[in-house]
Design a protein around this nucleic acid. Structure first.
Lengths: 164, 164
DNA sequence: TGCAATTCTTTTATGCTTCAAGCAATTGGC
DNA sequence: GCCAATTGCTTGAAGCATAAAAGAATTGCA
């Protein structure tokens, strides 16, 4: 069996068609769900996904966060956060102030309005997700969690290898 | 057991925390891989993922495709395709002509240059994906494929229900 | 103390993405 | 043959996203 596998690996340069199909399926599945969530957020609350995600971060940080913190947590660029925050301050959902101890730092937090709206959205959002995964059994969910964790680890290793 | 479950369902409005965590994991996992692929495409070939995806569609259609076809296949808006195609024609990767039988229709196909470059990129791309999923066993891949298919079906059902 | 390096944020240029509105060509019913 | 509806594409406005450069403030070290 081991010999066979090795022989094959030498004969045909490599067959990675399965992995490729897995990647495509992962991507389609995620995109399908993501675009459904975007639609519902837009329709129901007239809000975009990036705005929702930013508010979700801030909801977990009652004392506020710096723009850098947000940028790291959301895994998006600094410049991106600057613009996003600007629009959310504009609409009254966020409060932004310069830190007392370091004038380079901007601290943002949810306003009362922002928090109230987010909580409302988050509640519905959770039911949408449940609805979307309704056909999966508890066991399916557990297995997916496990395999996705493994896949994520594998991807992180690949990133590491390249960065090295 | 059944009674218990039902009782619980009535008492606590619902607990969908697991599904929510599954969604977040699916999203992070996909984003991690996608951004790694974007980086590599950019570094190695100075090309963006949307351009690569569009060329991938055209590589499978030697006789060309209409913009609408591309738009459906890629699941993006018409206006998006218009701009994408414009830039790829500009750079010499695509050939675009008005259909003989219907002057509304634009038919695009890869140029010789476009095809050559795409083939080169596609080859490396496949090895990147294999590298990214290297820690998964064959069995893991099969299981993930199966569960993602189920998840996709579940999501499609949810979309259907909402559209209805 | 002074100044170089670092850190935090913003700005700029470019590209992707959507939706909505609009234009051009074709089709279908009368 | 005519005209309304449909189809295919483009345009325009707004938002999201990045990388790179630059501007401010702080830190650390000689």
């Amino acid at each position: 069996m081991t010999l066979d596998a090795e022989t094959k690996a030498v004969e045909t340069p490599e067959d990675h068609a399965e992995e490729l199909r897995l990647w495509l399926r992962l991507l389609t599945c995620t995109n399908l769900i993501e675009s459904e969530i975007r639609s519902r957020l837009r329709e129901r609350f007239d809000v975009t996904l990036p705005r929702f995600d930013l508010m979700a971060q801030l909801d977990k940080a009652p004392d506020g966060m710096t723009l850098s913190d947000v940028s790291k947590r959301m895994m998006v660029s600094n410049g991106n956060v600057t613009g996003l925050v600007e629009r959310l301050v504009e609409s009254g959902h966020l409060d932004r102030r310069t830190s007392d101890t370091d004038r380079r730092v901007q601290v943002i937090r949810l306003t009362k309005l922002g928090r109230a709206e987010f909580r409302k959205m988050a509640g519905e959002h959770e039911t949408w997700i449940a609805d979307i995964f309704a056909d999966l059994t508890e066991r399916d969910v557990r297995e997916l969690m496990r395999l996705l964790a493994k896949a994520k680890g594998s991807a992180q290793n690949a990133v590491q290898r390249r960065d090295a």
